[in-house]
């Protein structure tokens, strides 16, 4: 407790030192309220209407809107980048986990992962735009590279947190490293791997707004355009669309992870578990019963 207090006080001292003159903050809140009322709110929902050009040939107008086209492209980029990133991150994370690989393998693997995540995806996007020109391809490569570095680190740390007993049994039995990784480490850490995978997908969707700013495609490209045109009410509307998609991904993540966790641990999501506190939502949705087989011997 003493250490936490000391760190908090130190942080406050540095913060105060960095701000310097608190007087310059006067009037800031009023400025924000004016900006919010005049430029941000209400959001301009015309982003959900069909664009005037090209002519919309869809039956539903929404499918030709800026929000739909941008979000779908962002989700596509994020999906491809997350999937490819996962495929490359998985073997690297097995090599980097020091309970699965010897040190001479783990250290180079960690260096590769650190190098890949030390550049933010926006910098990777700039580099790949030099190679592939402005557009979706640069966005996919940028996100994939960052995903490998970031996801790889999360995954090898999960694997290092595995219980010893299954790994020791495997070692004593004479299982190879590949067998131990494939048949023990991956299924045993499945909950964390899926959680990280879904988090990374959500992160990449959110980050689609950022790398789009440098021309790497997706909804960010539209946000960038509206920012340049100072149409902030449309920017807010697009950001709310991104927010809704992020909430939906969180919903999906809970549903997927509930398949690899003990019943009652991560519950299948419902409207109440998403929007209400646990104490209230439990009145509407009860925890499913355990299977009859688990009662035996108890």
């Amino acid at each position: 407790m003493g250490i936490v207090t000391a760190i908090s006080l130190l942080a406050l001292y540095i913060f105060n030192d960095m701000v310097g003159d608190w007087g310059r903050l006067s009037g800031g809140w009023e400025n924000l309220v004016i900006f919010f009322n005049e430029s941000l709110w209400p959001p301009d929902w015309s982003i959900l209407e069909a664009q005037s050009y090209p002519v919309c040939e869809q039956e539903v107008e929404l499918f030709c809107s800026v929000a739909w086209l941008g979000m779908v492209e962002t989700i596509k980029i994020a999906f491809v980048a997350t999937a490819l990133g996962f495929v490359f991150a998985l073997p690297l994370s097995v090599l980097a986990a020091n309970n699965l690989s010897p040190l001479w393998m783990a250290i180079p693997a960690r260096v590769i992962l650190a190098a890949m995540r030390s550049l933010p995806s926006i910098i990777w996007a700039v580099l790949f735009m030099i190679i592939f020109d402005v557009g979706t391809l640069a966005g996919i490569f940028a996100m994939t590279f960052y995903t490998v570095g970031y996801l790889g680190k999360l995954q090898f740390e999960s694997m290092e947190g595995l219980k010893n007993a299954p790994l020791e049994a495997a070692k004593a039995m004479g299982m190879t490293r590949a067998e131990t990784a494939w048949h023990i480490a991956l299924p045993e850490s499945a909950n964390h791997l899926l959680s990280h995978l879904m988090f990374m997908f959500e992160y990449n969707v959110r980050h689609g707004t950022v790398i789009g700013l440098v021309g790497a495609g997706g909804i960010g490209l539209y946000i960038n355009t509206y920012l340049k045109l100072t149409q902030y009410d449309k920017v807010v509307a697009l950001l709310l669309v991104v927010f809704i998609v992020v909430v939906l991904i969180d919903f999906l993540s809970m549903a997927i992870r509930s398949t690899v966790t003990e019943e009652g641990d991560v519950r299948r999501p419902s409207w109440s578990t998403i929007f209400l506190p646990a104490s209230i939502s439990s009145k509407y949705h009860t925890t499913p019963m355990k299977t009859s087989s688990s009662k035996e011997d108890e």
């Binding site: 007993a165 299954p166 020791e168 049994a169 495997a170 048949h183 299924p187 045993e188 909950n191 690899v260």
Partner: peptide
């Protein structure tokens, strides 16, 4: 390889499989 069978106190099973 395979010559020694080991059942640790915590069994060493893979719960998700």
């Amino acid at each position: 390889r395979g010559g020694l069978g080991y059942i640790p106190q915590r069994l060493g099973l893979v719960g998700n499989l």
